[in-house]
Design a protein around this nucleic acid. Structure first.
Lengths: 212, 212
DNA sequence: TGCCAAGTGCCACTGAGTGCCAACTTGCTA
DNA sequence: TAGCAAGTTGGCACTCAGTGGCACTTGGCA
């Protein structure tokens, strides 16, 4: 989670606060001093969390760095059953769902998301970790589609292609969003949603691109 | 390189042989005993290469594991100027080029490529490393297209979408290829090329997929 | 033959990530 | 309200990938 929800038990709120503290320390530090120069040990010291707990809260250092963006895909995965119950073009359904998820992200999400996106563009290893989560999303969609459209031949390949385009459109949108001047303080989620709609709408025609 | 070419200086052939020895030891070992259970130190001992040299020959352990598959994309990157000089639908051009590159892989490539593909499907971290190389390919294509079609608005998004579909089609083809029974001894590159042609041809229609 | 730069081996080091276990919370029960 | 059982945490030592530094070797060349 990007901002701790004020719900759940005392314990789970404590965990959420620790996670949040780590994020607030880490992402600006990565931006200022570079990803590699900031060690997990130092982060734990700053956020007053033991290293052992760090690895209970996050899958790893890259996961921490990408938490704001990954949370979008993880939320989408959680909502998948409801999303795939809709009807219409699959790409459009996924695009709409993605916009809705971004819209529902907690307040203050933008600031860290921009830092996260910049980091991802800079460091291939982080980028790769982000793709792992997208791949997990794809896998879920493929499984769900294969189960629901078992009779349609090639349904799983369709799902795979649609997800690839969805992920690419998302990346393009985030990339444009994050590269605006002063995005770290000015970027709004409404802008991102507009960019997402735009790149999803443009995708089908984009596939037809020709070399002269 | 998957098989050492018998060209170049004495020294470069020695390097190629060391790389090849590492691959021949590593991929079967990964398949038999699991990726994590096989350490770089052990591999170096077996292949009689110092650890320092290991990291001179490969970008890392994951790179080693994916060398056969990554070599395809790396070759494609090297050929990019010639490939993008062709005309026609971009997706088709990339698909054809991919098939040609696979066709040109050195003898014996199939055996290790199958092991590599299986590993990639099993271990998300390896999968991610593979996507880094594909992403590098995408970036090159985007740059080249942006330079050549500077006047066309949205040309870079087009390139990105096409590359995403190309990568997804490639993955789908390799996945099917590798999952055939006894693929590690029976799979041929002709089969893979046929599967590649098939999934590239099916991609445009796949994007139109609808939920009922 | 002898020089030189590229390539190599060795060793110590850093930093991510994990296994283990004792100490502590927390929520529940008597 | 005391106490208990289950789950959580922190500290520590450990493994392993990957790197920096430096002396040494070796192929290529004059």
């Amino acid at each position: 989670m990007t901002t701790p929800p004020a719900t759940g038990t005392l314990r789970s709120r404590r965990i959420a606060r620790s996670r949040q503290r780590l994020l607030e320390v880490a992402l600006p530090a990565f931006a200022e001093r570079g990803y590699d120069a900031v060690t997990v040990d130092w982060l734990c010291e700053q956020a007053e969390v033991s290293k052992r707990s760090f690895f209970r809260y996050f899958e790893g250092k890259e996961d921490l760095a990408l938490t704001p963006l990954n949370d979008v895909w993880r939320t989408l995965i959680d909502d998948l059953d409801a999303v795939l119950a809709r009807s219409g073009p699959l790409l459009e359904v996924v695009g709409d769902a993605l916009v809705e998820v971004v819209d529902r992200m907690p307040a203050g999400w933008e600031r860290l998301a921009v830092l996260s996106a910049r980091l991802s563009g800079t460091n291939p290893a982080i980028d790769a970790a982000g793709m792992v989560v997208c791949e997990r999303f794809t896998q879920r969609v493929v499984d769900a589609i294969a189960a629901r459209l078992a009779t349609v031949p090639g349904a799983d390949v369709s799902a795979r292609v649609v997800c690839a385009v969805a992920v690419a459109s998302h990346r393009a949108a985030v990339d444009t969003w994050q590269s605006a001047p002063d995005a770290e303080v000015l970027a709004t989620r409404a802008e991102l949603c507009a960019l997402l709609r735009e790149s999803f709408a443009a995708a089908p025609a984009a596939l037809e691109a020709r070399l002269p």
